[in-house]
Amino acid sequence: SAGRPKALRRAVDLLWAAKDLAESGANSKQYEAAALTLCEAARAARDARVEGRARTTLTMVHLFAGRFAEADEQARQAMELARGAGDPLPSCWAPNDRGIIALYEKRYEDGERYLLEAIESFRADDNHIGEASALCNLSRIHVGLGRLDSAIDLARQGIAVYDRMGLTLRLANGRYALGIALTQAGRLPEALDQLGEALSLFHDNRQPLWEGVTHFRLAEAHLAAERPTLAAKHAEQAIALRGIGGEWRRATVLTVLGKALRRLGQPDRARACWRDAETVFAQLGSAELSEVRALLASELAA
């Protein structure tokens, strides 16, 4: 029955509505299989609208698994299909996703370009939730670019939208972005406050993946505040909860855990963490490889 255009459109919209399943990590394998099947069916039916939406859901699956090149390719195709089909959904979300991918790959100028396009598209479509999401992502890009005042401001703008709409779970994402910006700005008590709020919201909304990522950010903030014991504790919780980004994210957490362990006078455990992270980053060709190699070299020189 998936061959019928109406059924296809209903199926892809259900898949889109259920995207939190992929995000919660509960059924991501089944979700990915469904997205692939729909992609092929849409292509066979020459339905650009369904294919564009299906590729947008596939982008997300790859993104959560840390497969950034695959995610970017799906998003690029989704953008092209959306232009042809005049479909606002992928026209907005695909550049937003490409902005997130660029952020993770430390291509900040590209990320800024994509996210400004996303914000414009969301505003044109009157999609306030999407706009707030893109503002929070742009905040993260500005952190990468060292523009910390505007990073804090953008996250606060996103939070204001979520607040106005009464969206608790999304509010957690906003506080998460603000916490990262405040950490980088050295405003650590405020950062820990925002991240603590985000953590309990994610926990209450049963979002273990986001909980894991927030523990990682709390580890970073505690490390910056010279509290290595708490940093190590949060990093270990992040690893236990398996954050978004699969092996890539696990390796970024191990990098921070190693830094905390070194400060706690446990250089052997620190080195073990960094060697594990080095293997992952080398396999993925990640931008983080040079940092972890520098940490290993500094430890050898010590």
Score class of each variant (00 low, 15 high):
127 N>G: 08
209 L>N: 13
195 L>Y: 09
121 S>H: 15
177 A>T: 09
163 D>V: 00
179 G>H: 07
150 S>M: 10
207 Q>S: 11
164 R>M: 08
151 A>V: 02
141 I>D: 01
151 A>H: 06
108 Y>D: 04
220 E>L: 11
194 Q>K: 12
204 D>I: 00
180 I>D: 10
105 E>Q: 15
115 L>Y: 07
216 F>N: 13
145 L>E: 11
118 A>G: 07
162 Y>C: 07
170 R>D: 14
218 L>A: 02
199 L>W: 00
99 G>F: 03
179 G>A: 01
158 G>E: 05
162 Y>A: 03
115 L>T: 03
175 R>Y: 15
165 M>K: 13
164 R>I: 04
119 I>S: 03
110 D>L: 06
113 R>I: 11
161 V>H: 02
137 N>P: 05
207 Q>C: 09
165 M>A: 10
113 R>C: 12
141 I>E: 05
211 E>S: 08
218 L>N: 05
159 I>V: 06
158 G>N: 04
122 F>C: 03
211 E>P: 01
99 G>W: 09
124 A>H: 11
195 L>R: 03
220 E>R: 13
115 L>V: 02
209 L>V: 05
119 I>F: 06
177 A>E: 07
218 L>G: 03
213 V>S: 09
147 R>L: 07
185 A>I: 04
192 L>D: 08
107 R>K: 12
216 F>D: 13
198 A>M: 04
146 G>V: 07
117 E>Q: 15
114 Y>N: 09
177 A>H: 05
199 L>T: 01
126 D>W: 12
120 E>R: 14
221 A>I: 01
148 L>K: 01
98 R>E: 08
